[in-house]
Simulated assay, not measured.
Amino acid sequence: MTKEMVLENLKGLIGVKFDTDKVICAFEDFEENDETNIIVEESSNVGYQMIAFIDTANSTEFCFSIDKENTIQDVWMR
């Protein structure tokens, strides 16, 4: 699976409540630098509230914009 495919899976979650398990499932068969351990955590950065990534150096980060009802408004990668 490519990072673009993961992003497509994650975009399918827009409009639903943020659920860590659903986010992790979107990473199915994705690895970077031979690693597959997925980290999902709150972000301290301005502009997005949650972040998900593979636990390895220089991994692709998937950023989530979440509204006050904990619904995913947008997701992008950087």
Rank of each mutant, 00 (worst) to 15 (best):
T2W: 01
T2K: 07
T2P: 02
K3P: 09
K3G: 03
E4L: 10
E4T: 08
V6G: 01
L7K: 05
E8A: 14
E8K: 09
N9K: 09
N9Y: 01
K11I: 07
G12T: 00
G12F: 08
I14H: 04
I14Y: 09
I14P: 01
I14M: 03
G15T: 04
V16D: 08
V16E: 10
F18V: 05
F18S: 02
D19H: 11
D19A: 12
D19I: 08
T20G: 10
T20Q: 12
T20I: 10
T20Y: 11
D21F: 09
K22F: 10
K22E: 11
K22R: 14
K22C: 07
K22N: 02
K22G: 01
V23K: 09
V23Q: 05
I24G: 03
I24H: 13
I24L: 07
I24C: 02
C25V: 11
A26I: 04
F27Q: 12
F27A: 08
F27Y: 13
E28V: 12
E28G: 10
D29K: 12
D29V: 05
D29L: 06
E31Q: 10
E31K: 08
E32I: 04
N33Q: 01
D34C: 14
T36N: 14
N37Q: 15
I38P: 06
I38S: 09
I38H: 12
I38M: 10
I38D: 10
V40T: 03
E41G: 05
E42N: 10
S43D: 08
S43A: 06
S44L: 15
S44G: 15
N45R: 13
N45Q: 15
N45K: 14
V46S: 09
V46H: 03
G47S: 00
Q49H: 08
I51E: 12
I51F: 03
A52P: 04
A52N: 00
A52H: 05
I54H: 03
I54Y: 11
I54T: 03
D55Y: 07
T56L: 06
A57N: 15
A57Q: 11
A57Y: 15
N58H: 15
T60N: 08
T60H: 01
E61Q: 05
C63G: 11
C63R: 10
F64H: 05
S65P: 00
S65V: 02
I66W: 07
I66V: 10
D67G: 08
D67Y: 06
D67V: 07
K68T: 09
E69L: 13
N70F: 13
T71D: 00
T71V: 12
I72V: 03
Q73I: 06
V75K: 00
W76V: 05
M77W: 01
